[in-house]
Design a protein around this nucleic acid. Structure first.
Length: 451
RNA sequence: GCCCUCAUCGUCUAGAGGUUAGGACAUGGGACUUUCAAUCCCAGAACAGGAGUUCAAUUCUCCUUGAGGGUACCA
């Protein structure tokens, strides 16, 4: 054993589709582990499948990672620009007797029922000029290969279950297995944290490291994220990609926080955490191996928690993007902050502060609270409000109470119709605060429209 | 079929031989109240099943069951 390598981890996605939340969590754990250990986090693009390559996916991927705040220290490195390295590595294995050229046609392979039959394994032939070939690994027939997964312990596989996997494809591109082993070695990756769909492949990778005479990195396979009812999390079952959640109005840090807790916990009862707290508490030992279900209800709650933790200036700036009346923004932000669950709700919830509603849009509330007495009461309260000199919440409340007493009605029977007349909706912050924010003239104007 | 992995409330989890099995989301109830939230309080809710090991198993071992993954010139 050599001395401890410096910590270096990577996120190595394929640019073939959207950044799935499972992939995002893999990136998060790599990121947290690097930050927690003072290590390096790099980004590697595994674009060795030319059929599935998608340039838009690559752009989205980079955008989504940045949006999540997972800044990488090095990269992105593209495997497609390192073809020569993989080719040489594969040849090297042929030279050393660990791999061989295979000339089998696709047609022949398709006739095989139980996988590749090692037809070319003992041919010991080099390809003729222009002859098509792949390079296959010569898997050992006897014995077993084992590795120590950091969260699952020792995993052992009989070598007879391992096939002669392709290293270099017909198109001269490497397979995932070759490319990732070669890159993880040359890029000095110390720990490979990846999805657990790779567990079965890891013995093959170990064998490759051995064949090259390289030391293998540590492996840590992360459990999958499932849909609430079980099964794969897909767009069909709701939001599944980072982009989906962004569009839904989630805060990036709420998503990161929530995802980090799917399979990991800090060991105490903390759940809502800052990035710094997560980094400080993070360790691979506390990741557990169980597949987890994605509970969007808890994400919603967490998003609300993070919105409430935001500095007021954040909401104020968001409001200023929508409205020109900047003076009101601070007050509106303060009133809305405790009841916001999604950032996307901000514009609908703040609208009546800045624009006079045309009509009552909330039919349910209207049916529930509006009576034939309401117009009369509202006129009276408008009269009372008009008398107020200092338009404060206390004085506004007093005006309402007075009208209630005079008519012997409950506050709700007056306040709710008044809210509907002023806001057009039946729910929101305290009425006194809303009125104070709108100002005396605007309130009276809105109330006087009722007939 | 073969191989591999996993298994605590509905969900996310704490627990690492002896606990009234703790917390959070969700659910139900209550307080507050002009509404909706937020906030606070209370309640119900779990160790998949079966064998072992042990004075003692949720915890260790094995089996069963269930779930997931692999078995590609995809990653």
């Amino acid at each position: 054993m050599s001395e401890a390598k410096p910590i270096k981890v990577r996120f190595a996605p394929s640019p073939t589709g959207y950044l799935h939340v499972g992939g995002a969590r893999t990136a998060i754990y790599n990121y947290l582990f690097a930050k927690a250990t003072g290590g390096t986090f790099y980004l590697r693009i595994e674009d060795t499948d030319r059929k599935r390559y998608n340039e838009q996916a690559l752009n989205d991927l980079l955008r989504d990672l940045k949006w999540l705040g997972l800044d990488w220290d090095e990269g992105p490195f593209f495997q497609s620009s390192r073809l020569e390295i993989y080719g040489k590595a594969a040849e090297q294995l042929v030279e050393s007797g660990h791999a061989y050229y295979c000339f089998c046609t696709e047609e022949r392979l398709q006739t095989l029922e139980h996988g590749y039959d090692r037809h070319c394994r003992d041919l010991n032939r080099r390809p003729a000029a222009d002859e098509k070939f792949v390079i296959r690994f010569k898997s050992p027939v006897d014995g077993a290969t084992k590795f120590n997964d950091l969260i699952r312990g020792e995993i052992e596989t009989p070598n007879k279950d391992l096939d002669d996997l392709v290293l270099l494809k017909r198109d001269k591109f490497p397979t995932y297995h070759l490319a990732s082993v070669v890159d993880d070695h040359y890029m000095q990756t110390s720990h490979v944290l990846r999805g657990d769909e790779w567990i079965s492949s890891t013995p093959k990778h170990i064998l490759l490291y051995n064949a090259f005479g390289w030391e293998a990195p540590f492996f840590c396979h992360l459990p999958v994220i499932l849909a609430p009812g079980g099964g794969k999390l897909s767009k069909r079952k709701g939001a599944a990609s980072v982009g989906d959640f962004r569009d839904l109005g989630y805060l990036p840090h709420a998503l990161v926080n929530f995802l980090s807790l799917l399979g990991w916990s800090p060991g105490d009862d903390r759940e809502v955490m800052s990035l710094e707290e997560m980094i400080k508490a993070f360790s691979l030992e506390r990741i557990h191996p169980k597949a987890v279900a994605f509970d969007e209800k808890k994400l919603e709650w967490m998003n609300g928690m993070h919105i409430r933790l935001l500095p007021d200036s954040f909401l104020i700036d968001e409001l200023k993007k929508i409205y020109s009346d900047e003076n009101k923004c601070a007050k509106v932000a303060e009133l809305l902050k405790p009841r916001l669950k999604f950032m996307t709700e901000l514009s609908a919830m703040s609208k009546y502060f800045f624009e006079r509603p045309e009509k009552c849009e909330d039919e349910k509330a209207y049916a529930k609270y509006w009576t034939e007495q309401s117009p009369k009461h509202i006129k009276m309260v408008a009269d009372e409000l008009e008398k107020i000199e200092e338009f404060s919440t206390a004085n506004i409340e007093a005006a309402f109470m007075k009208v209630c007493e005079e008519n012997e009605i409950k506050l709700g029977a007056l306040a709710q119709p008044a809210r509907l007349a002023i806001c057009g909706v039946g729910a929101g912050p305290g009425l006194w605060e809303i009125l104070e924010c709108l100002g005396k003239d605007e309130c009276i104007l809105r109330l006087r429209r009722v007939n």
